[in-house]
C-alpha cells in the first residue's frame, strides 16, 4: 500500500480530515508526523534561512520527521480558495522550497489550488493528483466528493459544538463518540471567556505556543477560537473592519478578532509569528480596532523560536490578572 505523509503543521489543522478521506478513498495509507517537539523545530530551522517564519520552520521539521516513513509527501500549493483573495507567498512556494531545502525528502505530491482559474482547472488539478494512485477517474471523483463531505462535516463539528480542530479530528477518527474533555456546552454564568485568535497552526500547536489554550483552561477560563464561529459571522466582522478580505486566512485573524472584540468576551489574545507578512498587518488592524472600541482588553503575543516560556507565562498572568480585576470591579458596581 502506498503511504502518503502529511506533516502535522500549517494547513494540517484546516484540512486534515479532507486530505485523509481523499487519500484513503484512493487506497493509500495516510501517515501523519508526530506532534511538534523541540527536536522537530530545531531540525527544521537548521535547514532554512534565518528569517523564515516559525510555522515554516516547524513545517520543515515535520517533513524531516516523515523522511523514511512514507512514499510520498503531500504538500499542496494553495494559491486561492476564494475568488480574488490570495494566499501568502510561503504557502505558494512551499512544495518548491521544501524540495530545495530538504533534498532527501520523499517525492512531493503538489497540487495547485487556485479558484480564480475556474472550477474546471481545479477539477483537473484534483484529477491529476488522483491519477497517481488509480487509473479509474470515477474513483478519483468519488474520493474527492467524500473528501469534501468530510471537510464540511469537520467544519460543522467545530462551529456547532465549539470544538477545537484537535478535538474534532479526534472525534472524527474515533468511531465511538468521545465527549470533549472540557464541558464546552454550558459555561457557568460567572466563568470568564477569553478568545484566542490567530492561525490554527499557531493556536493548536501546543509546543510552539507553550500550551496556551491548556493554560487558559486550567485557569478556569472558557476559551473561544476562530473555528467556533460561522463563516457569516466572520465575514460580517471583516466587512466592518476593513471592507473586504485580502488574505486567504484573514477570517481567523481580522474576522474573529473583530467579532470577539464586540461580542462581550472578557479578553482577546492574538497570536502571531514573528516575521509573518500577512499577520503583521492583520494584527495591526485588530489592534487599532481594539484601541478604538476601548471595551475589550486585547493582547498580542508574537512567537518565534527564541520566545521563552517564562515570558509567555508572565504576560499571560498579567493579562488575566487585569481581566480578573476588571471583572471584579464591574461586579461591585452592579451590587
Amino acid at each position: 500500500m502506498i503511504k502518503v505523509g502529511i506533516p502535522r503543521a500549517l494547513l494540517y489543522y484546516q484540512y486534515y480530515p479532507m486530505w485523509k478521506t481523499f487519500f484513503e478513498g484512493l487506497g493509500a495509507e495516510v501517515v501523519v508526523s508526530p506532534p511538534t517537539t523541540q527536536a522537530i523545530l530545531s531540525s527544521g530551522s537548521s535547514r532554512v534561512v534565518a528569517d523564515t517564519c516559525l510555522p515554516v520552520k516547524v513545517f520543515c521539521g515535520h517533513v524531516l520527521a516523515l523522511v523514511g516513513e512514507c512514499d510520498y509527501i503531500f504538500i499542496p500549493a494553495i494559491r486561492s480558495v476564494k475568488s480574488k483573495i490570495c494566499n501568502c507567498s510561503k504557502f505558494l512556494g512551499l512544495p518548491d522550497m521544501t524540495k530545495a531545502v530538504i533534498p532527501e525528502s520523499p517525492p512531493i505530491l503538489d497540487i495547485d489550488i487556485d479558484i480564480n482559474k475556474g472550477k474546471h482547472e481545479l477539477y483537473q488539478a484534483i484529477y491529476k493528483l488522483g491519477r497517481r494512485f488509480t487509473w479509474n477517474p470515477f474513483k478519483v471523483r468519488q474520493a474527492s466528493i467524500a473528501a469534501w463531505q468530510a471537510h464540511l462535516k469537520y467544519k460543522q463539528l467545530m462551529s456547532n459544538h465549539g470544538l477545537t480542530p484537535s478535538q474534532a479530528i479526534e472525534r472524527i477518527s474515533n468511531t465511538t463518540e468521545v465527549e470533549p474533555k472540557t464541558p464546552s456546552g454550558n459555561p457557568t454564568p460567572n466563568q470568564a471567556t477569553i478568545a484566542v485568535i490567530g492561525h490554527p497552526y499557531l493556536l493548536y500547536d501546543a509546543h510552539i505556543n507553550y500550551r496556551l489554550i491548556h493554560r487558559l483552561e486550567q485557569a478556569h477560563y472558557k476559551v473561544l477560537t476562530p473555528e467556533m464561529l460561522t463563516t457569516e459571522e466572520l465575514e460580517l466582522a471583516i466587512t466592518r473592519l476593513i471592507g473586504g478580505a485580502y488574505w486567504t486566512y484573514e477570517e481567523e485573524m481580522v474576522g474573529a478578532g473583530g467579532h470577539y472584540l464586540e461580542s462581550g468576551t472578557d479578553g482577546v489574545i492574538g497570536i502571531m509569528a514573528f516575521g509573518c507578512g500577512p499577520d503583521s498587518l492583520m494584527m495591526d488592524i485588530v489592534h487599532r480596532w481594539a484601541a478604538r472600541l476601548r471595551t475589550t482588553p486585547f493582547m498580542s503575543l508574537t512567537l518565534e523560536e527564541h520566545t521563552a516560556e517564562a515570558g509567555v507565562v508572565t504576560r499571560l498572568e498579567a493579562f488575566l490578572d487585569m481581566i480578573h480585576r476588571k471583572k471584579r470591579r464591574r461586579l461591585k458596581l452592579c451590587v
Binding site: 534561512v49 528569517d51 510561503k90 518548491d96 530545495a100
Partner: peptide
C-alpha cells in the same frame, strides 16, 4: 526588505 515573504522563499531556493 527584511520580512519580505516572496524573497525569503526565493532565498531559500536560490542556495540550492
Amino acid at each position: 526588505p527584511f520580512t519580505c515573504m516572496p524573497e525569503i522563499v526565493a532565498q531559500n531556493i536560490m542556495s540550492s
